[in-house]
Every structure is written in C-alpha cells, then in structure tokens.
Design a protein around this nucleic acid. Structure first.
Lengths: 231, 231
DNA sequence: CCGATTCTTGACGGGTTCCTTATGCGCGGT
DNA sequence: ACCGCGCATAAGGAACCCGTCAAGAATCGG
C-alpha cells in the first residue's frame, strides 16, 4: 500500500451529512474522498481505489444499490451502507447486493467508526488467521470440520456446519436471511426463515456459554444474523 | 524445487481482477505468472510448471472447465477455481473436472490466500511425509503396497488400498463421498455411497483395534470420512 | 475349466438429522 | 389495549444415512 492511512470514499448527496462524515473520519486519520452523486461515486471508486466505501442509499441520480452492484463487479472492497430509519427493505437489498454492513440514520460517530474499523480489519485480517473460530467456551475448525466445547469434541450436523461457515465468512458483519438460506439450503428455500431460527438455536445451544443471552450469534431483527468474536 | 517461493499461474481475462490477484499474491511472496486467455493458460501451465493454478471459469476463448481438464490430463497440481456468484452449476462441474477448491467473486484477499495456502499444503503433504501410516495396531505402507496388523502382514485389496491412499492424502481432514468415489471408482460412480460403507467396514475390520468404535477411520455424517492418526 | 478372491448388489435395523407443526413472548403500530 | 409481525422454543414424525449381513457376479490365476 502506498499510504499507511486508509482511504475512504463517501457517496452521499446531503452536504450536512457528507461534511459530518468527512470531519469524523479525517479526525481519526483516514483520508477521505467525497462524491455527491451515485455516478460520480462509481467513477471515484475506480480512480481512487479507496480501501472502503460508505454509500448512502437515498441518492438522487442513481440508486445506492446500483452503486454497490457496480463496485462489486470488479472490487471486493468493504462497503458500508447508510440508510434512513425504517427502510428495512432497501437495507436488505443492499446487503444482498454485496454491501458488508450498515448504519441507520441518525447514527453516532462512535458507531460509525466502530463499523469502519471492523470492516477494514476484516478486509485484511483473514489472511493471517487460520480457519479456526475461537469463541468463549467453544472452537470451530472450519477446515477440519471439527468443533470443541469446553475442550471436549462436540458434533455439528452438516447444516449446522454450513451455517457457521457462512456466518464466519462474513465475520462481524450482517448476513441476510436470504444469503444464509440460499447458501445453506439452496435458492429454493430463500424464504424459509423459520429454518434459520431453529438451527440458530441449535448452534447457540451447542456453542454459546449462555444460549439465552447469545454473545456470538447475534440476531439482527428483520435483516439477518451476525457472528461476532471478541478480541 | 528450483525456487523456495511457490509459483502460481493466474488464468483470468479481466485485467482488474488479474492485477488484483497478482498484487495480493506477490505481496505474500509467491511468484506469479499471468495468462489472459484459456489457451494461453494451458500453454503456460506446461511451460512454467507452476505449483498451483488459479482459473477463472468465465473465459472468452476456452471454457475454464476445459482448461482444468487439459491440465488434469498431465498434472496433479492444485487448481483453484474463481467463479461469478450464482453459477453453482459450473462450480460443481469444475470440481468434478478436477479442481481442488473454489472462491466466489467478489472475494477478499484473506479468503483467497487462505485457500491458496490450504491447497499448497495439501499438495506438499504426501511428498514430505514418509508414505507409511502408523496406526495403533496396524501400519500401511502406501508406496510398497503393504500392510501389517499386530506385526503380521495382512492383505489389502486394490480398492481398499486406493481408499486408504485417498484418505491419507488428506490426513486429518474430511474427504467427501464424491471425492472418494471419483478417485477410487471413477466419476461414473460418484453417487454410489453404498460402496463406501462396505469398504470402510472392511478397512475398519482389518486396521482398527475395535472396528465398532473406530478411532482412525471416522465418519462425518452426510459429508464423508476422515482418517486420523494420533501424535 | 475350476476355485478363490474380489467386487457388486440387495436387504434390513437402528440411529441421527431434518422438516413440520404448534405455542409463547416481545415489540411496534393502530 | 389490541393486533400483527418476527423471533425463540419445544416436540414428534418422516426421511435419510449409516453400518451390517449375505449372496450373486466378475475377475484372475492356476
């Protein structure tokens, strides 16, 4: 990388929010590129090659989701979505289109920065770590297809395993119901969200210290689930 | 090996992704050869003899699957497949054609490198370790095609031998039904999982101390089998 | 051509996994 | 307060997978 400071692209039409974002991010040491429209954003993404993109869904010219799609055609860079409250629908569409995470307007600086850090970390991290998930009282070895609980081996069924693998692939980020269902059960069951609840419970029972207060397998109401491992 | 750094062949038509791959791989210390077309790729594979090949399925001139077939005709080098999201069908075809693993576009650097390392590790294993399996009460010499049980020689049938060899090649990892069947019986019997149960029992009867509670030949329900040797 | 080994095929019981159905709970909207 | 929606949880039966036995083909060496 030419520069040590990560570059972040902001695609946001409202000047208020754009400037707020720039201020917050530069204060943290990030370099910032701003685009006020969707078209401009897709161009800036290719020319500036940022390390991360923040995309508002409510753009005047080009749908934010379309922006995400166009970036995803050629780059795996982390994409953070900013959406107005209540627009669950487009939030999900954005994630399905390839976004990595989202924040809901209005949001605090802390939340935003946390997500940015998480997204950047995940973009680089996996290269160093092996494919072993380390939870509080349990571990899951994705490559060897093995799991332990308090040191002892435990069994995961094929579906349970695929589910963990799918969540682990997007560690720390939201995975939509649709994504999980199509990857684990196939496209024909893309709407059987009920399956998820059942198997998520199984995973929590087997891997969480307290299945009732899950720390790792978090549910994102109306959207999907998220797998989190502490540092 | 002439060089310590493994050489990797990239067969990919889109310049963006090709350069992204080169950058990521060279940064990790790999040597890289690029081919922009399928035909070029098959040629470069023979001339450069890379340690691993990364093949995009969506090539303009020659189907990526055809590239895999042609390489597989003469080389067992690990082949990593890159495919666009949603093309489940060709992904499976690719694996059947002899590919070792796949990543879906768009993918992160970490994921890619992890798979590359895994693939290279699998490839190096059998050559570095000696080819003698030491189990609790039995040994299997894969090179000399011999086996002992409690010190005395025992006979393994050809199929039994191929089965052990296939499991030993992926020591400690699960080998899927499909993999075992295609490697031992050929692609036409890829679904006759029944064979596996029968021959697995034979192996356990001959090599396990207690065939009913197998310690080395473990079954992974719904997925495949795994060969484990204690340290 | 015959016998022995090996491979294939069929059948059955037991166990696990998976799907279905049903119920309760909490939250937000009307 | 009521209702609807999404989520968590429980439980039973169906489907599937595995291990096992046994007997019929195929193969091979003599």
């Amino acid at each position: 990388m030419a520069e040590a400071r990560p570059a972040i692209l902001i695609v946001e039409d409202e000047p208020e929010i754009r400037h707020f974002l720039r201020a917050s991010l530069t204060a943290e040491g990030y370099r910032v590129v701003e685009s006020a429209t969707g078209r401009r954003g897709t161009i800036d993404a290719t020319t500036h090659k940022p390390d991360l993109a923040i995309v508002d869904l409510g753009l005047p010219d080009l749908d934010g989701i379309e922006v995400i799609r166009r970036i995803r055609e050629w780059s795996p860079m982390p994409i953070l979505v900013v959406s107005a409250r209540g627009h669950e629908r487009s939030k999900i569409e954005a994630l399905d289109a390839g976004a990595d995470d989202y924040v809901t307007k209005p949001f605090g600086v802390g939340e935003l920065l946390a997500r940015v850090r998480a997204a950047l970390r995940h973009a680089v991290r996996p290269s160093e770590g092996n494919s072993v998930l380390r939870l509080e009282h349990a571990t899951v070895d994705l490559e060897r297809r093995r799991a332990t609980r308090d040191g002892a081996d435990i069994r995961l069924t094929p579906i349970e395993f695929r589910l963990v693998a799918c969540l682990a692939k997007h560690l720390g980020r939201v995975v939509t119901h649709r994504q999980l269902l199509t990857e684990v059960w196939g496209p024909t069951h893309a709407k059987d969200t009920h399956y998820l609840r059942i198997y998520m419970k199984q995973l929590r029972d087997k891997l969480e210290a307290d299945p009732v207060q899950p720390r790792h397998f978090q549910t994102e109401t109306g959207v999907g689930y998220r797998l989190v491992v502490e540092e």
